[in-house]
Amino acid sequence: MTDIQFKVAKTVREAASLMAAAKGKGRILAGGTDLLVQMKAGMVTPGTIIDVKKIPEMVGITETKGSYRIGAATPAAVIGEHKKLRKAWPGVVEAINLIGSTQVQGRASAGGNLCNASPAADSVPALVAAGAIVTIQGPKTRRQVPVEKFNAGPGKTTLKAGEIVVSLTLPARPKTSGDAYLRLIPRTEMDIAVVGVGVSLTMKGDTCVSARVGLGAVAPTVLLVEAAAKALTGSKLDAKALDDAANACSAACRPIDDKRGTIRYRTKIAGVLLRLATAIAADRAKGISRPAHSQQGH
């Protein structure tokens, strides 16, 4: 039988050192909502579990000149209760608040959702649309990478040996901006996205002056769909712009037929959700409050 070491790190550097010392058998414990399930299912057998919840830098939300830094282990429920963040990035917050059930929200984190590297992770398309930057600590150095470049494939990140995710940073942006995240699940709860779309827009009057689109569950990693953003940017979000952007999303899909959906369905829904998410983001950019949409269709 193999014993599992449990370590509580007090600093980011200590956590990174412990990860390096574990020689590939280390697993970070934030909320544990993926790790414990995987251990129970026999999918992973860690040599060392490193608890990072006691590291102040990794838990909490700070604002600097309109930019928000979210500690990687901050529970989703805490993020959902942060009024200013919710106002600034409603799409990001609603996406993070879709990870798991209410009970899971008390522990699950955006950093964990990212590191689990599921193409269907709910928070990631919204973070991609938001242009979030991931801060990564290695045993010696710290680096930053755009969120869309972080994952390598299903269950695979680009983290190197001994590296851990410290935080996610959302950039400052003009007040006339808005974002939204929509996913499709066959049920109303307790399900995994068949497709997820995050849209972030900055408007000037009726014109969209900049846009980013993140697309989840349709490829091995969450995609930044630049062609969709290009179709929206400079437009008045008219029918043609929306058609072009929806088609760009459908065209970007490289999905598989599986137990959660068909290629045909995912490709279609990517376009459907793009239109709906864009409309919500645009309203929010114009200061029209739109309630969080958990998913489409219901």
């Binding site: 499709l184 066959p186 369905y265 829904i269 459907v272 489409q296 269709g297 219901h298």
Partner: peptide
């Protein structure tokens, strides 16, 4: 029935 998604409510 949502015509876009085929979801039944």
């Amino acid at each position: 029935v949502d015509a876009d998604t085929g979801i039944v409510t």
